[in-house]
């Protein structure tokens, strides 16, 4: 009763993003992660060239993630009210940065021939 269940968590996420968007995002995250693991195993090495481009994309991922969260919650930078808010903002930005970097790396690996 006072415990967390998977069902409750999924209900919370569905509500946050809307049911279809949540599942689309979840499937996208799983597919991209699986593809990332696949290209790493296939190539048996990290390509620094692709990694460099992936790094360049990180600020864009960070900004997009923050704007997305602000958009769905009708809020903005002026609402940052204390240290915990800064940490939440950084965490959202970091998640966006890492997510996009993985996407960019994986996309390059799948679309270009291994170098």
């Amino acid at each position: 009763m006072k415990q967390l269940t998977l069902e409750t968590l999924i209900a919370v996420w569905e509500e946050m993003f809307g049911r279809s968007l949540f599942w689309v995002m979840l499937v996208a995250a799983v597919v991209i992660t699986a593809a990332y693991v696949f290209v790493l195993l296939r190539d048996r090495q990290m390509s620094m060239r692709k990694f460099f481009l992936a790094q360049l994309s990180m600020p864009f991922g960070a900004i997009a993630a923050v704007l997305f969260v602000q958009g769905i919650t009708s809020s903005g930078f002026r609402d940052i009210g204390g240290p915990i808010d800064v940490l939440v903002l950084l965490a959202v930005a970091a998640a966006g940065a890492v997510g996009l970097a993985i996407l960019v790396y994986t996309a390059q690996s799948l679309l270009r021939k291994p170098t």
């Binding site: 009763m1 269940t5 069902e7 409750t8 209900a11 919370v12 996420w13 569905e14 509500e15 946050m16 969260v69 769905i72 919650t73 009708s74 809020s75 609402d79 940052i80 009210g81 204390g82 915990i84 808010d85 939440v88 903002l89």
Partner: peptide
């Protein structure tokens, strides 16, 4: 303290958890 995180919770997590309560799951 007036915080953004408290607003985020109010805006996003409150209703689904309420719904879970209705179903007897929270």
């Amino acid at each position: 303290e007036e915080l953004w995180i408290s607003w985020l919770m109010k805006e996003t997590a409150l209703k689904p958890t309420y719904n879970a309560m209705l179903r007897g799951k929270a």
